[in-house]
Amino acid sequence: MLDAIARNRVATLVCVTVLVLLAVGLAAPGFLTGNTAAIIWSNGLVLMLVALGILPVILTRNIDVSGGSILGLSAVVLGLTVNAGTPLWGAVALALAAGTAAGALNGALVAGLGVPAIVATLGTLGLYRGIMLIATGGEWIEGLPDGLKALGAKGAIGIAPLGWVVGALALALALALRTRRGLWPNAVGDNREAARHLGLPVRRIVFGSFTFAGFMAALAGVTFAAQIGFVPNQAGTGIELRAIAALVLGGVSLLGGVGTAGGVVVAVIFFTAIDTALVFLKIPAYWNDLIGGAMLLLVLLIDGRLRIALERRDRAARYRRATQLPDRTPLEDAA
């Protein structure tokens, strides 16, 4: 029974999400519509991208807290270049390249120079935000072209073009993590020494994970700019912490080696659904953080206790077998 719950964290989370949505639907008729679903998906895109990007990093038992700054930096690169007359596709490409390079620098610091991930990315968190502020002089970037805004506006069956892109990326990541090489980040986080022993390119895997996180944060920056139509100087601030919270809620272990893209998608939807539902229930927006935080703590507390109980049981079982001798008294003992 314990096993079933602890090992099916994602299924449990799906049930809770559905229950919450149904409850809100009862309290506020008109909530349970396809339109609401499209809104929830759209509201969650930026968080989804950052969280899915950090997923491989955390699977390798590292962490990346610079996602929000990379998001802001990429959005500024996009805004500045497109307003300077660069064609939209070129500006998007530059923004993605900037974010990927920022992620690669994180990866080089951690995998190449051996800086602890939390230290390296706390440093670049400030560094990238600083570059962004210097580039804009602290000003907001406004007047973004309509072509960009169209990427974030409603498209086929109520989903924006970027919404489709993110859905496709989530699916691709989920599949990629199941391939032969896709298991490598899991392996590195699960037992680094074993991965080294088996000849896996441990440092390249870690480097690749951080680079991927940078790319995804950059795409989040593009999405952010397209959805709101301007780039404030605090764009993305604090989103890395929400992303990490969503990862943990989605069953990703901060100790590495455990987690699925599906779990992350469900967790992001859960968070966004709560925010959206609060709007429907006409609860003031300043309650969002409190309720979201309380939900997160509750789920994690229960999950943590379950894991401890499971571990204790596994350990006891191992040693019980180790000391159970067959019932016999070897003759040589007497000697």
Binding site: R180, N186, A187, N191, A195, H197, V258
Partner: peptide
């Protein structure tokens, strides 16, 4: 080298544990 302390990936299956690092999928 089969080490004294088995190097295992606790969260992966036996099949994945054995095959990780091999040229083809498990």
């Amino acid at each position: 080298l089969v080490p004294q302390e088995a190097h295992i990936f606790p969260h992966q299956s036996v099949l994945q544990n054995v095959c990780i690092g091999l040229p083809r999928a498990a």
